[in-house]
Simulated scan of single mutants.
Amino acid sequence: MAAELGALEENLGLRRILLFVEYDGTHFAGLQTQAQGERTVQQELEAALARIPGARPKVWPCGRTDAGVHALEMPVHYDTQDRIPVERIPHALNSLLPSDIRALRAREVPLSFHARKSCLWREYRYRILLRRMPPALERHRVWWMPHSLNLIPIRHALEHLVGLHDFRAFAVKEERNTVREIYRAHLEVWPVEGGQEVWLEFVGSGFLRGQVRSMVGTLVEVGLGKRDSDSVRALLRGGSRKEAGPTAPPQGLYFVRAGYEPYRR
């Protein structure tokens, strides 16, 4: 009983804050804290929160990103007993965060809310720059290719990825259930000086470790004529990781956003 009362007193005035953060993953070992103590996004966020009186310096991200991967709007939540107005929280944190992480906005959520467990879908984008000359400014933000891709079979291959499938062939060291549902798999093309930029976008219920980059590597092989678009369907029906394409480099991948209500196109 005494322990329960103590916990109740400790939680009086406790708020749960959902924070949306943007980061450049170039100089991070990933989002989540690493056992070997390398620099991570979570480490930097928790170090900033530790300097705010009343805030509990522990964040729970919506998902994970690997070293070199970026985020446009990654949700994380944390608990606090501070009285900072919610609209001022991003300003307070940005004054304490390094320049490659920025808090964009925040809102108070129920204590039952969880940034990862409450999430219903996630969206990723992969950027490929197709032009003869390599980029200088975007070298850490795109996968550069000096040759063209045939986009028509890539579009056909993307259609096979939509739906509920076993994505085992695209997973890297995955021990969990490998069945996931992709709601949208889309290709956009943008003209750039001297070439074009291709965006491959995926929205799904969740993604396995390395799944998006493995799918992109396989789709690039389709665009290069190294495999046909129907090979993607065959991989989903029981292929292995070694039968799929290579893992695309991390710098072209972006966590775009997450949703806490059912996905609607």
Rank of each mutant, 00 (worst) to 15 (best):
L18V: 13
V86Y: 10
Q42W: 02
Q42A: 06
I84Y: 06
L19P: 01
A136F: 05
H114C: 05
L219I: 04
R83P: 04
I17M: 01
L31D: 13
S118C: 04
R180F: 03
H140A: 12
H186R: 12
W199F: 08
P98N: 11
E174D: 05
Q196G: 12
K58H: 15
T33E: 12
L72I: 06
E188Y: 01
A248T: 02
E197S: 08
P134I: 05
G30K: 02
W199N: 14
R127P: 09
N94G: 03
R107K: 12
V203Q: 03
E138P: 09
V21M: 14
H140Y: 12
K117M: 10
G6Y: 09
F207S: 01
L12V: 10
P135H: 08
N11V: 07
A71R: 00
H70C: 03
D66S: 03
P249V: 11
G63S: 08
M215F: 06
E73T: 08
V172Q: 07
I128C: 05
G223S: 09
L12H: 15
M133F: 15
L45P: 00
L253N: 03
L93P: 04
R51D: 15
T33D: 12
P75T: 13
N11F: 07
P90N: 07
H91Y: 13
T33R: 09
T33P: 03
V212R: 06
A71Q: 00
E10Y: 06
E197V: 03
V76L: 11
V142K: 01
L19E: 14
R116E: 04
H165K: 10
R265H: 12
N11C: 12
T33H: 13
A248I: 02
L235T: 02
R213C: 03
H27G: 12
E9D: 15
R131L: 11
R176Y: 05
P191T: 04
V179E: 07
L200Q: 01
W144G: 06
R88F: 10
H165G: 05
I84W: 03
R15G: 06
A2W: 09
L111S: 08
A136T: 12
A244L: 00
S214R: 03
A67S: 00
P75S: 11
H165E: 06
G68W: 06
L253Q: 09
Q42N: 00
D100T: 11
E22S: 13
L224G: 04
L120H: 14
F167G: 00
G259R: 08
L104C: 14
A115T: 01
M215N: 09
E10L: 14
P57F: 11
D66P: 01
T218Q: 02
G238D: 08
H27R: 15
E4W: 05
L161A: 01
G163E: 12
Q32D: 11
T26Y: 04
V76M: 09
L93W: 04
P57M: 14
L18C: 15
A258P: 09
W190C: 04
T247I: 07
V216S: 00
R16W: 11
R257E: 14
V162Q: 08
Y126D: 11
L187M: 01
R125G: 07
N177P: 01
E201Y: 04
A35N: 14
E123K: 13
P246W: 08
V232E: 01
V69K: 00
G239Q: 02
K226N: 13
F28M: 10
